[in-house]
């Protein structure tokens, strides 16, 4: 379980997170939603220690992540993978090498051949195996995103954090990524925490939704709770309306 307890974060004079508290239960797909700039990405980057809270605690099972140093965080990052909003593949390496890198560096496989076979299997899981020898610059955004997911899965993480996985993708590729996230949780037992403002994704695959508004938790619940909410802010967001109480 990932727990946020009273997490606050400011950048300069701007309060991005204001005493945010919620839990991410194991095995489920949890979404953090909210308007652009609501602090969603900053929130999940706390989990792997890329951002430090000004106040509050972040727990990963029985580890208090917010207290760990850069070196101790390595063990957290092996258990909890982060898929960045942009694919962030290493452009000097082919897709196969990108996926093989964490396997090599963390000794998952005794021989080069074994590592390459594992990397190919990971690429096959995201349907990118035919493109194993291509370089990232030769691929479209959706393909790169899938390779990045394969790379994030290389160390068999228990948790995967997705930062806006469908932003910048066309609808078809976006649904493929959704399906991938779903398969990971349903069949692989992975706990997913997804940051998104893509309504189709949210109502398509979420088990639980946390909505952030102005740095605070506005509502926690199931997709149905959100559909039926009479909070005007929630209603405006889930219906995608231009007019309403939300700030421009």
């Amino acid at each position: 379980m990932i727990s946020f307890r009273e997490v606050s974060k400011r950048f300069g004079t701007r309060t991005v997170l204001d005493r945010v508290t919620f839990d991410v239960p194991r095995g489920a797909i949890s979404f953090v939603i909210g308007a652009s700039g609501a602090g969603k990405s900053v929130l999940i980057k706390h989990v792997t220690g890329f951002v430090r809270p000004d106040a509050g605690e972040i727990w990963l099972d029985d580890l208090e992540v917010s207290r760990l140093g850069e070196r101790e965080l390595a063990s957290v990052r092996k258990r909890c993978a982060l898929v960045f909003q942009h694919a962030t593949l290493f452009d000097s390496q082919s897709c196969l090498e990108n996926v093989a890198l964490p396997l090599e560096k963390h000794g998952r496989g005794r021989t080069g051949a074994e590592i390459r076979a594992r990397a190919r299997a990971l690429l096959a899981r995201v349907h990118m195996e035919p493109f194993a020898d291509r370089y990232p610059s030769e691929l479209g955004e959706g393909m790169k995103k899938r390779v990045a997911i394969a790379r994030a899965l290389a160390l068999d993480p228990e948790y995967v954090l997705f930062d806006e996985p469908t932003t910048g993708l066309d609808p078809v590729n976006a649904r493929r990524v959704d399906r991938l996230i779903q398969t990971l949780s349903r069949e692989g037992g992975v706990t997913s925490l997804v940051v998104s403002h893509d309504l189709t994704s949210i109502f398509g695959i979420a088990d639980r939704i946390v909505m952030l508004y102005k740095g605070r938790v506005r509502l926690i619940g199931t997709p149905d709770d959100f559909r039926q909410s009479d909070d005007p802010v929630v209603r405006q967001f889930v219906r995608g309306e231009a007019e309403g109480p939300m700030d421009a």
Binding site: F50, R77, A81, P102
Partner: peptide
């Protein structure tokens, strides 16, 4: 370029030390 495109953070996210690598 790697820093600007978050490739360095991606290394850290894979628990790979950017200094050594």
């Amino acid at each position: 370029t790697m820093v600007v495109t978050e490739q360095l953070d991606a290394l850290r996210a894979l628990a790979i030390d950017p200094v050594g690598f």
